[in-house]
């Protein structure tokens, strides 16, 4: 008699194969409609052009603290934010897609774990985000002179930037898991949820994606300190754009004044690390609760 799958057979190879399976599927579906695939690329590019044209109106001058021009500032903001926004939106979007297409029950019958499942359904979003990232970086550098006024980063600063990015994406993923849990916890099945409303609004308006935080009134700057994107953008710009003397220098966020002895970039990293730890655990717990509630009420699929 044959048995089911043994737990021991589901090692790291299985996990990588599953992620690759999801990625392959997403890529195939994404490119299935050629017109839309082309438009997807063009829309990203043209929206980027619009932002950069507006940015070009600003008189050429170094952006406060970070040192580099506004084109570099904005390019880094758009590029990094696209990854962070994907981390926040990916789980919700993936879960909603599964629910709407009645795929969720079938996927939940497979032996994949919840983290692997979330990674799998989000992987397509990350592929698109990486595409946007390349467009922003290449477009910014080639068309608008971004990074021309920036000294090349050192290996140490590059590695630090990757660490910061990793922490930022972890924190944003935790928020994304919480957002996904809203599908079932508060019946947010209309395409938007309260977690992303708050996070996207604050990060878009106040985290410094499109303009320095100093442009905002004081109370809005403090609100910005609630989202991890603010710290990630501040730290990454210091590491990637600023000359070394400036990188660890002047404070930019209100929260920096609370620990004047610490370099602002280091404080950003510490806050991000704490945020990542709490958000990941809390988000996963909320999502588990949401899925349990769905199983209890028979809401895993659109049809009971």
């Amino acid at each position: 008699m044959t048995g089911g799958l043994a737990r021991s057979s589901l090692g790291w190879r299985y996990h990588w194969r599953c992620i690759w399976t999801f990625a392959r599927r997403e890529l195939r579906l994404w490119t299935y409609f050629r017109v839309n695939f082309t438009l997807d690329l063009l829309v990203v590019f043209t929206n980027f052009i619009i932002y950069m044209i507006i940015a070009s109106f600003r008189p050429a001058a170094p952006t406060a603290v970070y040192g580099a021009g506004y084109a570099s500032f904005l390019t880094v903001g758009l590029a990094v934010n696209t990854l962070m926004a994907t981390a926040v939106a990916g789980p919700y979007t993936g879960l909603m897609d599964c629910w709407q297409n009645n795929r969720l029950e079938t996927l939940m019958m497979s032996p994949i774990s919840l983290p692997l499942f979330i990674t799998g359904i989000s992987v397509g979003q990350y592929a698109r985000a990486l595409m946007r990232l390349c467009i922003y970086l290449a477009g910014g550098a080639l068309l608008f002179g971004a990074f021309a006024d920036v000294a090349g980063p050192t290996l140490a600063r590059g590695a630090s930037a990757l660490l910061v990015l990793g922490l930022a994406l972890s924190a944003c993923t935790g928020l994304g898991l919480a957002a996904a849990s809203m599908v079932y916890l508060v019946d947010a099945r209309g395409g938007s949820d309260p977690v992303r409303l708050v996070v996207d609004t604050l990060s878009g308006i106040a985290a410094g994606v499109y303009f320095p935080v100093q442009v905002l009134p004081g109370w809005l700057q403090w609100l910005a300190c609630l989202v991890p994107q603010t710290y990630a953008l501040d730290a990454l710009r210091r590491l990637l754009l600023s000359p070394p003397a400036v990188a660890l220098g002047a404070p930019t966020l209100p929260v920096h004044a609370l620990a004047p002895g610490l370099p602002p970039a280091l404080l950003d990293v510490l806050i991000l690390a704490a945020y990542a730890l709490l958000a990941l655990r809390g988000g996963l717990a909320l999502l588990k609760r949401g899925l349990d509630s769905a199983r209890r009420d028979g809401r895993l699929s659109t049809w009971r």
Binding site: I54, F57, R58, P59, A188, S192
Partner: peptide, 28 residues
Amino acid sequence: SSTVIDLLQTFFDATIFFFMAVYVAPGV
């Protein structure tokens, strides 16, 4: 929740452009 968010989203998008415009205004 989706209805409320949908109504508010345009307001927040406009806010982004507002602050961006404030930042670049001296140039135009």
